[in-house]
Design a protein around this nucleic acid. Structure first.
Lengths: 134, 134
DNA sequence: GCAGACTTAAACACTTTTCGTTAACTTTGA
DNA sequence: TCAAAGTTAACGAAAAGTGTTTAAGTCTGC
């Protein structure tokens, strides 16, 4: 039973990158070429993308795609967008403005720098008005 | 460039399952054995587990290692340990005692037998006080 | 106990992924 | 413009994942 999608090599490279090392420096440390470090990093990112998409699929199993909150949106404007889209398809969102903002912050902490959404957020909604952020 | 982690076969089976069909019924529809449906479903769940774990790893990348809760610790003593360690580095944990215990139980169910932590748990924390258990 | 639903293990052919090389290419900052 | 950083393409070998089958196993409700 393996753990995640990423191989040891991929995690190793990502950690070094997070520390700010260049591909060449990492290549020296792990004794390979910088081209190889590049491809390892690239396939790691690809795996991360696939992991996200896999969970998106899960949500779509019992929810429908409502809208996308674009990168750069003010967090406080998000509820109005979501309420508007939900109204279009006649679903009542089961959160009020405040608790919706809290849900987003809890659900995607890495997307919320202060009041600014710093990453596109896909919003899914069930018939019952439950929301998912992918 | 493939999309998610799940194969077409795996998504097919999950969709039928969501509709409430038995493995035998699905086997008849897609013309194979029920044992095969079982293994396909199982590997789909395994892939979903791995997708989640992959994203968890991502979070630990921008969090710092706070401490280790040693195997054998009483679950109810954990919050005090974490609050203490976080205070040392001047970060305010964004959970209170009760919700912290719940977070641990949800996040690492296999580590909590009754009130006893039965596996070392590495605790990570972000500047914002968000916690991850690895 | 019995039937139906589900799980498991071993084995097999097949496909995909990974890590690595070399060599040429583009981007970026001073 | 120069050097360092990063990317890309083509290729190979080894490893891992997938879909299948068959046959045996567990678990559950009646």
């Amino acid at each position: 039973m393996k753990d995640g999608l990423l191989t040891d090599r991929q995690m190793e490279v990502l950690r070094y990158r997070k520390q700010g090392l260049t591909q060449q420096q990492i290549a020296d440390i792990i004794s390979t070429s910088k081209a190889n470090v590049c491809t390892i990093e690239k396939s790691a990112m690809e795996n991360i993308r696939r992991a996200k998409e896999t969970l998106e699929f899960l949500y779509t199993l019992d929810a429908t795609h409502l809208c996308v909150i674009p990168n750069g949106t003010d967090l406080f404007e998000v509820p109005a967008i979501i309420f508007g889209e939900a109204e279009k398809i006649n679903i009542k969102v089961k959160y009020d403005t405040i608790s919706l903002i809290n849900r987003i912050r809890e659900s995607r902490p890495q997307c919320c720098k202060a009041r600014c959404i710093c990453e596109d957020i896909h919003v899914y909604i069930t018939d019952a008005g439950e929301l998912y952020f992918g």
